[in-house]
Design a protein around this nucleic acid. Structure first.
Lengths: 366, 366
DNA sequence: TTGTATGCGTTATCAT
DNA sequence: ATGATAACGCATACAA
């Protein structure tokens, strides 16, 4: 059995008839190497199927050779897509991509300990992790180049969207449709340290206020960014004495849950209750859900690129704000203010200020 | 405080008043170390905030210290969830988790070159990559411990489901509902080397045959495992001279597309055309889609565990077959065996509160 | 149980 | 442009 073929740099040097130093230089494309020599060395290395030992290289050079991508989750839509974008870019570099998951950052710290990171990676790519929360802070102190995706911090490289604007777009859209009681399915209960959430809350409120509407705390419910959470949140909203006629959810997945809650209550999205999500999830199209789309994969790519730039000594601390886009679909376009209320006489009246039909008041299961 | 003071094993040894060898042994929990000494060393290391240099350690020991998880995609539901499961257990080991993406394995090879893997990882975790396709084969030859998830090969460690049985369950369910023309939305066009696809095709055919039905090639269309592909496939099926009254899709995402196609054609899933998917996607519940659920996260966990066992010299080549479960929902339970019969006036979404008969066969899931 | 000494495969410094 | 050689930080036979 031809177990391992420990072809070392010395073998290459010997066969090529040069010193290991020259081989090293040639292989890494360093200057001060005769083109002829380099060519020769490359050929020999190829023929011998030589592969540098990362361990040795790293030990000698002091570089770790890896990039840590740290995110709360992998399987959730937003994170999966950002990660996919980042992976593509990092894979085309010669850094290893190490993945770390933290779980919900508002819960007990599962953030990878510094020890787990130190000496193993040269840079950090943080996805959806607010730099201000206690467990993340240490990661920033460890002195490695960092790039933030989906959150931001003065002086740190990052790529993010205008969450305030996104939420405002969504809310304003609902207002334009004639709605006056607009609910909010948020993430975690406020107050919390998550910038994106706070920004979206701000956008929501601002839109309401500038339309002369008063944000009603009773209409703001946490949905924890899950489908089930969104469903429960919608249930809670429907159970209010005066339920909303429209809802803005801070994520598509929560909006999906909201849609289901509506159906379970016999209400039709877009007709009885308007719903707008946030993300641009593929399923939003399938479910005919209006949403604020963000360029997730691109955010991952760009973030990775920014980090690589730093690692290569190039520009440090660059920051990019990407645009979002409101995708209007059936869940909000069939304005019910005067819309197809024919099928549901109960809600035909009262313009935008109408109440949700009685059936909405039914108790929420689960 | 000063930057980082590269605390080495020698510093620890000096401060602790022992040799570096002892420190090394103590820190790694090796036997033949006086408990008192070990304790002392540990304390000193802790106080000095010592972190072993992976590079040095790996160079000296010859181990790479990493596990490569290789999958076609990250952002697709199945892969994201399997990966999440694997991540959890690998993270609790002391191997680094390196992620590699290949893109669709039926396309030009983007499989990570051996050179990219050799010396960097100690083991391979292949997700949804059939060992028989040309690009994957080399990975198996490189001599590293391998575990397969979602595919299998005699002699190789792996975790998979009974795809034949899953497809049979789905198809039989439709047959039981009275359907006789049952379409199939497959993955890639047959023939192809993907075991899971072939198995599901087999299950589909067997169910039909054992019910005295003849599988009609005209009713088998590729959907490429995407929502859009599924939508197109459904469109194709509906355009047949004699369209199916029911459809089994090899993935939930394709089934979602099929649902959308139906709606666009003014047909109601579960009433005009029955649809069954495959996966157990969360959205299946939201969309009231009947599906064959597989324990994806658990597959990831188990796969990682099997690989770790091999790496630790324990059991080699273990194989696990996990059970699937048919989750019956509205997309198939409102039996209406007459295909595109006259549309019914009723709107039945309100009653979509079906429970999930976890049919006889579910092992692990949540 | 503990210490000594050597080697792991590269990179980088200094000559040449 | 190229070569010799000292680190790099740790693991591990071997000795004690």
């Amino acid at each position: 059995m031809s177990r391992n073929s420990p072809v070392t740099i010395r073998d290459v040097a010997r066969v090529a008839g040069v010193s290991t130093a020259t081989v090293s230089r040639a292989l890494r494309g360093l200057p001060n190497v005769d083109p002829t020599t380099r060519d020769h060395v490359l050929r020999v290395a190829e023929r011998l199927d030589y592969v540098v030992s990362p361990a040795a290289s790293r030990l000698a050079s002091g570089r770790a050779g890896g990039i840590a991508v740290i995110a709360p989750f992998i399987a959730r839509w937003y994170f999966g897509h950002v990660l996919a974008g980042a992976e593509r870019v990092i894979q085309s570099s010669d850094f290893d991509l190490l993945v770390f998951t933290t779980g919900d950052p508002s819960e007990p710290h599962r953030v990878p300990s510094i020890r787990r990171l130190r000496r193993r990676v040269d840079g950090l790519l943080l996805i959806g992790l607010p730099p201000e929360i206690p467990d993340v802070e240490p990661l920033l102190q460890i002195g490695l180049p960092v790039t933030l995706i989906g959150s931001r911090r003065a002086g740190l490289s990052g790529v993010f969207i205008d969450d305030v604007e996104g939420a405002r777009l969504a809310t304003q859209h609902l207002i334009n449709l004639g709605h006056r009681r607009i609910g909010l399915i948020a993430g975690r209960p406020a107050p919390n340290p998550f910038v994106a959430e706070n920004d979206r809350l701000t956008g929501y409120r601002e839109a309401l206020r500038s339309a002369g509407l008063r944000p009603d705390p009773q209409l703001q419910v946490p949905g924890f960014f899950t489908v089930d959470g969104g469903e429960r949140a919608m249930g809670t909203l429907l159970a209010r004495r005066s339920p909303p006629s429209a809802v803005f959810a801070m994520s598509d997945e929560m909006a999906f849950g909201a849609l289901r809650a509506l159906r379970r209550h016999g209400l039709r999205p877009g007709e009885d209750v308007a719903v707008v999500g946030f993300d641009g999830h593929e399923m939003a199209e399938v479910l005919d859900l209006t949403t604020v789309a963000q360029p997730v994969e691109h955010m991952g790519e760009l973030g990775a690129r920014l980090l690589l730039d730093q690692l290569r000594g190039g520009g440090r601390g660059e920051s990019h704000r990407l645009d979002v886009a409101l995708c209007i679909r059936g869940s909000s376009s069939r304005a019910s203010a005067q819309g197809r209320s024919a099928r549901r006489p109960a809600i035909s009246s009262a313009g935008a200020n109408r109440d949700v039909p009685r059936s909405a008041r039914l108790k929420v299961d689960r």
